[in-house]
């Protein structure tokens, strides 16, 4: 099978999709090999299995539409910065799949995950086996040395709690990613995802400090249905990639100036908000 568009429902049960995904990962820049674990603990079989699970969502459930495929960096390290919808990071998996499936040369995207994930049983293992990293300098440097892309959601745990009443508001960004971009001379690709907020359909939130998470969302089905409440609603996802911005060529010398870094980050936040607004047809 050469294209994911040829996959049928049955292929997700008979292993065809998994084999397709494994082949794609081997062709990509993931650097994972059969029978070996990469430095983060990524295993190609576990990754192929997980990604093929989300591929079903990509193709049949969210019916993802990608705009600006040519803007996905073709090689070298890079940061993909995007808006983020609450609860389960379906937007991250769909961006990762878009970068694997759509460009001619498949790119493997690693995500920076919340530290609190490491405390959640099964999820911590899943994150490690699929090669996702906890955000610390050393891990980021390694991923960039490995010439991989990283997707970051700088709104973080603080800002990712939009409800359907204020959806697609990009909250204040954390600045850490910009420091990495300047320090490691990596381009930044502004990205936005629409449809993800409707998939989560958050009605409200409770402030808490449970297991390292600052908020717990309330949706029509969560927490009422327990773990089943994580199931997203089938909204249509659209992912937009904008041309990359090379902050490091002009502003590298300003990486130790917190005010300037914050200014750059704020500019990027407005850029992504603007992308979202025009994608949604808002003013």
């Amino acid at each position: 099978m050469s294209d994911y568009k040829d996959l049928k429902h049955k292929h997700f049960f008979d292993g065809t999709a998994e084999a397709f995904m494994k082949d794609l990962l081997l062709r990509s820049d993931a650097g994972m090999q059969d029978g070996q674990y990469d430095m983060i603990g990524g295993d190609i079989n576990a990754t192929a299995k997980t990604m093929s699970f989300f591929l079903w969502f990509y193709k049949f459930y969210f019916r993802v539409e990608v705009h600006g495929v040519e803007n996905i960096p073709q090689d070298g390290p890079g940061l993909i910065v995007s808006n983020h919808a609450p609860i389960f990071p379906f937007d991250a998996t769909q961006i990762a799949l878009a970068c694997l499936l759509e460009p001619e040369k498949p790119r493997y995207v690693r995500t920076i995950v919340n530290r609190a994930i490491a405390d959640i049983p099964f999820f911590s293992t899943l994150m490690s086996r699929t090669g996702q990293v906890i955000g610390c300098d050393d891990n980021v440097r390694r991923v960039f040395e490995n010439q991989n892309l990283i997707v970051v959601f700088p709104t973080g745990a603080e800002g990712d709690m939009n409800t359907i009443f204020n959806k697609y508001q990009v909250h204040e960004f954390a600045v850490g990613f910009m420091e990495y971009a300047l320090r490691f001379r990596t381009p930044v690709t502004p990205t936005c995802v629409t449809g993800s907020e409707e998939a989560a359909l958050t009605l409200g939130k409770i402030n808490t400090n449970l297991a390292g998470f600052k908020h717990i969302p309330i949706t029509p089905i969560f927490p009422w249905l327990g773990p089943l409440g994580f199931i997203p609603f089938p909204s249509k996802f659209r992912i937009y990639f904008d041309p990359q911005i090379d902050y490091h060529t002009e502003h590298r010398e300003e990486r130790d100036n917190p005010e300037k870094v914050r200014e750059l980050v704020e500019g990027l936040r407005q850029h992504i908000q603007h992308m979202l607004d025009s994608a949604l047809g808002r003013k």
């Binding site: 430095m39 906890i134 050393d138 390694r142």
Partner: peptide, 9 residues
Amino acid sequence: HRDNPALIH
């Protein structure tokens, strides 16, 4: 620790 880097220097 949960925030240990993947490989420690």
